[in-house]
């Protein structure tokens, strides 16, 4: 999807989009259906193993998801520290100046939420190892209405453009002598509004013109459309599409009876 692909021509990239979509869907559903820590952790292990077998380089993986990992760690700490504060029915593990911090319940809840977030992040990382154009075809071949499939795809297509525009505006402001590092919080907020407004305006204009351009090229003039390319599932693709959800079902019973 972007230039610095973590896997150049790795196994995951060659894989049909449908097993990847199935993996994403079944992993995120499975981790929401139960609050069993061992089960959610085992889903995470499956995802990591898939990424490693798929050829993902660990240091690149870290680079890609660094910010999100940091955020998850921060959420975990905040959750553990403050969950259950002031509750009479639980005994705090830590006492500072008459206040109780860190409860067993808090740690468990924080661990569960963090693990769930990690599952979603890793499933997303697996999806990133594919082309937007293939997901469009996959969605359409799965009988998703094409107008909906295009909405998703055009949204994904626009994200990098928006980011580029944001960098442009940011650079323009710096060139005009605005030093973001020296600004106070209110000044920073004002400066970021100054970045977001022009981007919003140009995004709206672009969306307007884009819809006109699409209509002049016949979009939605027919109830169906044809496609230049066709995706074909090979044996391995079909097997994995079935295997991924089967693994999660199997793990569920394994964890339950262990």
């Amino acid at each position: 999807m972007n230039e610095n692909r973590a896997i150049k021509k790795g196994r995951l990239r060659i894989l049909d989009p449908r097993p990847k979509l199935m993996l994403m869907a079944s992993a995120s559903t499975a981790c929401m259906l139960t609050s069993n820590l061992w089960y959610i952790a085992s889903i995470l292990v499956v995802l990591v193993v898939t990424l490693l077998i798929g050829g993902m380089n660990l240091s690149l993986l870290w680079n890609r998801a660094k910010a999100i990992f940091m955020l998850i760690i921060m959420l975990f700490v905040i959750q553990t520290l403050f969950f259950g504060m002031g509750r009479a029915d639980a005994a705090p593990l830590l006492h500072i100046g008459g206040f109780g911090f860190v409860y067993t319940g808090g740690i468990l809840l924080a661990a569960m939420l963090s693990l769930r977030l990690l599952v979603i992040v890793f499933a997303g990382l697996i999806l990133l190892e594919g082309e937007i154009r293939d997901y469009l075809l996959a969605l359409v071949q799965m009988k998703i209405p094409y107008t909906f499939a295009f909405m998703v795809v055009i949204g994904l297509h626009f994200l990098p453009i928006l980011r580029e525009e944001a960098t442009n505006v940011y650079c323009c402001m710096q060139l005009r002598g605005k030093d973001f590092k020296k600004l106070k919080l209110t000044g920073k907020i004002r400066a970021y509004i100054g970045i977001c407004l022009p981007i919003l305006v140009s995004a709206l204009r672009r969306a307007d013109e884009m819809s006109i351009a699409m209509e002049t090229r016949g979009f939605r003039s027919q109830p169906r459309r044809t496609y230049m390319r066709q995706l074909k599932m090979r044996g391995a693709d079909i097997a994995l599409t079935i295997l991924f959800p089967a693994i999660f079902v199997g793990l569920y019973f394994l964890v339950k009876f262990l």
């Binding site: 082309e131 937007i132 154009r133 795809v153 055009i154 297509h157 884009m210 351009a213 699409m214 090229r217 016949g218 979009f219 939605r220 003039s221 027919q222 459309r225 044809t226 496609y227 230049m228 390319r229």
Partner: peptide, 15 residues
């Protein structure tokens, strides 16, 4: 509209 050159050219005829 599309994410590759060839797909974008194909967009109209596909429609």
């Amino acid at each position: 509209v599309m994410t590759t050159v060839e797909d974008d050219i194909a967009f109209g005829p596909e429609n």
